[in-house]
Design a binder for these strands. Structure first.
Lengths: 147, 147
DNA sequence: TTCCGTGCAAATAATTTGCATCGAT
DNA sequence: ATCGATGCAAATTATTTGCACGGAA
């Protein structure tokens, strides 16, 4: 864990890696599978017994996104959520999300199936793609009532 | 236009098609290519010289979505946007969106490329998909500086 | 000392809700 | 008379901002 954070320190050229910023990063590293909102980060920090202001969390999330360490997402629940950018994957690799309409859990599809599609779209629409967002909404294996 | 709305009336079984609701529908029919926020619908109705409360618009958008006439979308600009569901397309046909990071315009990709992909994912993840959302972020043909 | 970062509280912005009233059945 | 729909204002929720303080370079 510490190792991971120190690896990330190199990203903090102009910005200080303060205890608060480190705390937020830690929380994401300890919750890799989750997509946390500012409020949830706030709760998790309280559970760790750490003091941090909510405004600081918002500012930190914004900074970490700008540094490319977090990715801002929106799953339609009225608040922004962030996920850790997996540094070990190639820059253009993005996974997709399965959002359960019943339990709200979010599952990940590791493969990125959109390379070819992006090429087609770039040519056809003269649109230069830098990112994409693919979400599937439905019912997860725990919530499906069928069979 | 009137014809289109009367076709939609059949959807209003339990709900009255009031002047306000008709107005909101009209605005979407007159702006098929746009993805309107509640506030924008409010502005457009004022431009038409019609009186309608913003709260009513929010409630109407919610209703029209529940009736399957509008689709709620989120493009990451901090407000929900709605688009008209094209009734003449097959139920499972969804288009995709190109969101320009420079001018914020939204372009549509008419084709739905995700059928096969959905089948693969449904099997692999035991997830029953009922909807999806695919957005590409980048620079549109008007904003690209290259060449 | 000079900045940057933080916390708190106030300000914004989007959306929702309570409630009295209006209008169609 | 009843019940759904509306408008307004107040309430909520998420997020941002102003500002004084504190600590590191």
């Amino acid at each position: 864990m510490k190792k991971k954070i120190s690896e990330m320190e190199s990203q903090f050229k102009e910005h200080r890696l303060t205890p608060q910023r480190r705390l937020v990063l830690e929380i994401f590293l300890e919750n890799k599978e989750r997509h946390l909102s500012a409020e949830e980060v706030f709760q998790l920090s309280r559970e760790k017994g750490e003091e941090i202001g909510l405004a600081t969390i918002y500012r930190t999330l914004e900074l970490l996104e700008a540094l490319g360490l977090l990715r801002k997402m929106n799953f339609g629940d009225g608040r922004s959520r962030y996920e850790l950018v997996q540094l070990d994957l190639t820059e253009h690799h993005h996974h997709h999300h399965l959002v359960c309409l019943s339990c709200s859990r979010i599952f990940e599809v590791e493969e990125d199936f959109l390379h070819q599609l992006e090429e087609i779209i770039e040519q056809k629409h003269h649109f230069s793609i830098v990112n994409h967002n693919l979400q599937f909404f439905g019912y997860c294996k725990y919530c499906r009532q069928d069979v």
